[in-house]
Nucleic acid binder design. Structure first.
Lengths: 365, 365
DNA sequence: CTGAAAGCGCTAACAT
DNA sequence: ATGTTAGCGCTTTCAG
């Protein structure tokens, strides 16, 4: 049964109570910082705790109706810079509280939905004090249940406003608009756009921002320049390849995530296109890598780690103060201009988007 | 206290026992697949479980001496392809068992050691049935405790052989040797090497493999061509820059991780060096991105996802069968040849490395 | 085959 | 200020 470790370790509050001759309730009081324990007693308890190396048993603590001091985190996949960046903020914020983080990732595509839900069931049902949910695949499957149980949770980067849910999100529309305008002001007229994962709220918001900028500058929206992506590197790579091999290829591409933008960069290289000379590229997120790749990526920063930290703090507030009013917290986006964009090659007649630009193949690479 | 959800949900075994008029012990038996329950009774229990939507309370289960069906996972940071790849294997393997994964990452550099240890304490002390430890920062701080408690654990990618510990590791020496030989056979004579994080066992193993290949081919080891890295992108980038701007720069660089190799690629680009024309690059790990970047990276595959899966299965075996003998499981490495290497440019006098190649700028787009 | 009863370690009334 | 007493939901003897 594998329970060989059951009896071995486990210093309990009873042990430390016996050690110094008080009741275990008193020990519990001290441990939970309750009022009304004589300072001297408190100190003796603390000493014994230290001496015996007591470690709280979260199970028992939670079961007895106390808190577990555990925050559950649900992410839809770790393999991307976006999640990592968010995690960083969350981790730092959590290290300043006395909570622990339990992370559940539903990478596996099969049974993903099932997994996410049943995991949430378990979490609600005892394990965690609250839940942080990062752009989940099928939130509806269980958010309803969280609501029923009045279980503390916060949605991260999920601006879906229905139902007054506690949520942290970025000003996606505004961010996409600014980035597109920047490209337009640089002189670009044919700007490719790669969307995010279709079901994510931010996907349409960013697309709308892109369209709005186009409209504001009297450019017609060309659906041929829009490709469906998924926020991930591969999606960007594939879409970039498609866009750049178009007969009438764009001179700039705006990808809805940095991971995708980096994919576009590699696609461009594969086609022997220079960045930014031949093709300007803008990303979204400002993940760590954005400032590391060559050339450094111009992108819309949404301060992911700040979002993560804000979400965590909001959640802790809900846990410790269930009556707190629900908030929808928007984090501002901001265009970070680096080295991946420049005006389109001047040789093109601005009025007419030139025909096929067969990328020069003369240099060997 | 945030316990508003305490009473709300929670269908318990008592509920379902009452529902069908049996004792809760019988329900427990069915739930745990114990022998000796009348099939008819069993079926009624199962039906009621389904009907009432019962979800086990892990806390109570574990507390009562059963298993929690939770496996704890300790990683030292999520922000790299290496960990991600490992995680993928683990996640897939775990989805085929009836265990859940709880992930703890000790990203924050401050108090890292403290955190790792105290988390392990909590995990041992009730939360998990077993622990998977991925190249931890300070394993010694708590492995001893795991041993004392006879708590099931498996070290992943930690070939430190001291103490007969259950471990999964790759044939690092052999892999590095093969990669270096490949480069030598291509005609390279000055081969740069970037090490991993200093304290990780694989770091010295790979370096030794590199040295062994050099020696086997009568090349002298030149310490000036070795740079200290850390397995991460930035370290590779920095070291790559240093190596490539050496007066007598190498014609090939072997980085101890793909993340670093990709950093080297960007460093090369920044110096206007073409890959592989001007500089050959080899990585280690074969992370997902290795076959995605342009040009595709030649690398030493260590089948990370397979390692992850193997580790998980090994751990489950220990949990369910504590008497299993401890194993040290080696996973074979294998050189995967892609597009990032070629023979050194013949035009160069082998002794002296030429300056920069300005990539052709002739095409307009 | 199934029920009764005793905890697991802890928190939270309720006493004192 | 501190001790006593119930449970939390579950697994596991021990009796039938």
């Amino acid at each position: 049964m594998g329970q060989n470790h059951k009896k071995s370790g486990g210093v309990t509050i009873v042990d430390i109570a016996r050690e110094i001759g008080v009741s275990h309730a008193t020990v519990s009081r001290v441990l939970n910082g309750h009022e009304g324990v004589k300072p001297a007693t408190r100190q003796r308890v603390l000493d014994a705790v230290e001496r015996l190396g007591y470690v709280a048993n979260l199970q028992a603590r939670r079961l007895a109706g106390g808190r577990s001091h555990v925050i559950g985190l649900i992410v839809s996949g770790l393999t991307n810079g976006y999640t990592n960046q968010l995690l960083e903020g969350i981790e730092i914020a959590v290290s300043e509280t006395d909570y622990d983080l339990l992370l559940y990732s539903s990478i596996s595509r099969t049974r993903r939905r099932l997994h996410e839900s049943s995991y949430v069931d378990r979490l609600i049902n005892g394990l965690a004090d609250g839940l942080l949910i990062i752009s989940p695949f099928f939130p509806e499957a269980y958010i309803e249940r969280l609501e029923q149980h009045n279980f503390p949770y916060v949605l991260v980067d999920h601006s879906d406003q229905r139902g007054n849910r506690p949520v942290i999100y970025a000003t996606n529309h505004q961010g996409a608009l600014e980035a597109t305008e920047y490209l337009i002001q640089l002189g670009h007229r044919r700007i490719g756009f790669i969307t995010g994962w279709q079901l994510h709220p931010s996907t349409s918001e960013r697309l709308e921002g892109y369209k709005a900028a186009l409209a504001a500058h009297g450019l017609v929206f060309d659906a041929a320049l829009v490709r469906q992506g998924d926020f991930l590197y591969e999606g960007g790579y594939r879409a970039g390849l498609e866009l750049l091999t178009l007969p009438d290829a764009p001179t700039a591409i705006f990808a809805s995530s940095d991971d995708m933008a980096i994919g576009v960069m590699d696609a461009a290289r594969q086609l022997n296109l220079r960045i930014p000379d031949d093709i300007s590229i803008v990303g979204f997120d400002d993940i760590h890598q954005a400032s590391l790749v060559y050339p450094k990526l111009t992108t819309v920063s949404q301060s992911l780690s700040q979002m993560g930290a804000a979400a965590l703090n909001m959640l802790v507030d809900y846990i410790e103060n269930p009556q707190s009013p629900r908030r929808q917290h928007a984090v501002a986006t901001r265009l970070v201009i680096r080295d991946s964009c420049q005006p389109p090659a001047p040789s093109y007649p601005p009025s007419r988007q030139v025909a096929v630009h067969e990328p020069a193949k003369e240099h060997n690479m």
